[in-house]
Design a protein around this nucleic acid. Structure first.
Lengths: 138, 138
DNA sequence: TTCTCAAATGATAACAATTATAATTTAATG
DNA sequence: CATTAAATTATAATTGTTATCATTTGAGAA
């Protein structure tokens, strides 16, 4: 009873071996990989797989709301299957991305912003940039 | 006594007509334009200007800390010469970007995050996505 | 002012990430 | 099974951006 397969079916996405591999790779990975990285890490198991498949798959998962696509001022996009609301803390030196699940700007802040702007806010991207401990001690 | 020229000189950037035009265009513009837009809006005044100049100029300004480069999940980067800390509220339908200068996650929140992560946070990118009033009423 | 030179510009080529295309294969359904 | 719409694959095309290099120019020195 694979939950990931079920999630794909719920979204009317066919459960193919490649798709499942990419999705579970993302679900188990907290490094926010790029398409290139996904491709390289998975191709041992699927030697015939094309990188175009990875591009199409992450786009399908993104459109279905199963993964989040974002960019931290790099050339390539990054992908994250952990859709629970969280912030990213990014090291400007080693480019490592750490997740932060603490509450940030909830409730009151948002309501004030909606009132001031007339927007109805539905999602957010909170990225914090700085040096991680390791890079600072060098 | 043009302040923008002075800022360029402070950063050891030569004050050329093209550079000044791009910088003042950005300083007066709150639409967070792309390179393409900057180029189109300025080329009437500088018919001989190359789009390569716009790319190089925004990169120079960005490296000097005079403009901020960011991306809101679009193909092209956007640029903003208003470096005072502020958040962006982005309409997912019409792609308009509104600035918000209210305080968000200051002090305590940040210190907690630094403590938990070991990072020393130096900058941030706070983007909120939703529908603007106009797009909601359609 | 004129000289000098590093830096900027402009035209264009190169590149890298991504998307489109089209033929082939495959998952899901009856 | 048989059918069919969707996914995969290889590859071409596209797009945003960067690199190259010859030419021009801004800014300080003489």
């Amino acid at each position: 009873m694979n939950t990931l397969s079920e999630k794909l079916r719920e979204k009317k996405l066919k459960v193919t071996p490649q798709r499942l591999a990419i999705y579970s790779y993302l679900a188990e990975n907290r490094a926010h990989p790029t398409v290139e990285t996904i491709y390289n890490d998975i191709k041992a198991d699927f030697p015939s797989m094309s990188i175009a498949t990875v591009y199409k798959t992450v786009a399908a998962l993104r459109d279905a709301g199963l993964v989040r696509e974002f960019n931290i001022n790099e050339d390539s996009n990054r992908y994250d299957a952990h859709t629970e609301e969280h912030a990213h803390i990014i090291c400007t030196k080693c480019h490592r991305i750490e997740d932060y699940y603490g509450d940030l700007c909830m409730g009151e802040d948002i309501r004030r912003m909606e009132l001031a702007s007339g927007f109805r806010i539905e999602s957010r991207d909170m990225s914090f940039y700085g040096l991680c401990e390791k890079c600072r001690n060098k």
